[in-house]
Design a protein around this nucleic acid. Structure first.
Lengths: 242, 242
DNA sequence: TAACTTAGCGTATTTTTTACGTTAAGTTTG
DNA sequence: CAAACTTAACGTAAAAAATACGCTAAGTTA
């Protein structure tokens, strides 16, 4: 097995971050190349896989190169394989020049990834990458807009049955942060008092002996998500998370 | 674009069928080949994709060749890409001989498919294919046992949030059939009287002016699932199906 | 005709969800 | 320093949904 790029299979990552107000996606400016008609056009982080990696490894590599972070939450969610997806031609040309391989057809496996933005304000973003609000995404290369759209839908759906929201929050979070995340993701307001009750009943969301700091109002209690307790709970009960 | 097989990407299908009692998977005996040490070993229906198809088309082709049926329910659910998945070597050898391509590494995109067994008792199964109860699956080629397992888990999960169960039932079904399906899939008994009430409240499960036939007890009312009504309902309410 | 099996309706109780009133603990402003 | 403001946090009543369980009806088989 060598380390050459596979000409048929690539991985693209839709990286989500929540800044306590809105949901963002991490996009990168595509690499400059001579004769590029749309310099600075943005794309999803991604690349063809190498023959020494399985897909998860490729995705982790891409994210590590992009953010410096390892062990981020990552989930494969769809495959894009239509025959005409390497369009427009200008994008295809760009891909040929930068990858150095003769690309004919590319099947891409899409991942979505969840990052604790707030924890990692120190996030050493690589050159040309940028958080962009999901409502303000510009035109991207190839079918990347569609991929992002599908990722958002997937996240919305999965949010309701798996405890993945916590991957987007700081390790120590307030009930209000959790609520806001939910509101942004589901696109609707939630009654604060009922939400509280619901959350406080969940034994795997544990109260910390610590309060919020640096806010200009009454500081809220901090909580954390306990994965072990959640798994116990899940084993007993069926599914459906919140 | 020619019609040659892609040496890197394949599609495998886990086809489920429900015979009103238990859940089965459609498996095929792998093609006979000279010097096969395990003749008749079973596998999932599948094949490398051709360069003229996207993945969904490949999957539909595989199922058409296998069952003669078109337009079956089909859903991509995972990708298997580990570097050591083309094992044992005897299986790999078999693959090389039958595909005629020099296979080094294969990424497989897995689909699960749902078939109305009861409707299609006339199902013209191709030679060597066979319905096998999910609790009695023999050792399969490559990592196909793992793929089946993952498909079952996926089906169980998705069952609860999407109305896919109906794809496994005849077009006209009884409440008891629906209940049995649910019990088999979730692996636990359900109170018949409460289940009835729950179902009858759903406006998209509509009563037909018709009864079961050929049973040796009181024949039950038949119902059908109305997709249009379901979509309306879904638009209003959020998600979570049963 | 009696025994058996599955279909199908109903009622009472518990649990969960929803709607909304209220107080408390901080910060900011005049 | 008091009043105004903001967000946190507790509580109660009503509505809706889930659960537990009793019972009758309509067929078939012995």
């Amino acid at each position: 097995m060598q380390n050459k790029l596979n000409p048929h299979i690539s991985v693209d990552c839709v990286v989500f971050g929540f800044d306590s107000r809105q949901l963002n996606v991490l996009l990168v400016k595509r690499q400059a190349v001579a004769g590029d008609l749309e310099p600075g056009k943005m794309k999803l982080p991604g690349s063809p896989i190498t023959d020494a990696e399985d897909l998860d490894h490729s995705a982790y590599r891409i994210l590590r190169e992009l953010t410096g972070l390892d062990r981020i939450f990552l989930k494969q969610f769809a495959v894009f394989s239509s025959l005409d997806r390497l369009q427009p031609l200008s994008d295809l040309e760009w891909l040929r020049k930068t990858s150095g391989i003769s690309v004919e057809r590319m099947v891409t496996v899409a991942y979505y990834s969840l990052i604790k933005i707030t924890d990692a304000a120190e996030l050493p973003l690589s050159e040309g990458s940028q958080w962009i609000n999901i409502d303000e995404i510009p035109q991207l290369t190839f079918d990347h807009n569609e991929i992002v759209q599908r990722a958002i839908e997937q996240l919305r759906r999965e949010m309701l049955t798996e405890p993945i929201g916590f991957e987007l929050l700081p390790k120590k979070f307030t009930i209000t942060q959790l609520q806001t995340l939910q509101e942004v993701l589901l696109g609707q307001k939630i009654d604060n008092r009922n939400f509280r009750k619901k959350i406080l009943k969940l034994k795997y969301i544990v109260l910390l002996n610590e309060r919020e700091k640096g806010v200009s109002h009454k500081p809220a209690q901090l909580y954390r998500f306990d994965k072990k307790l959640y798994n116990q709970y899940k084993r007993n009960i069926g599914s459906v998370y919140l």
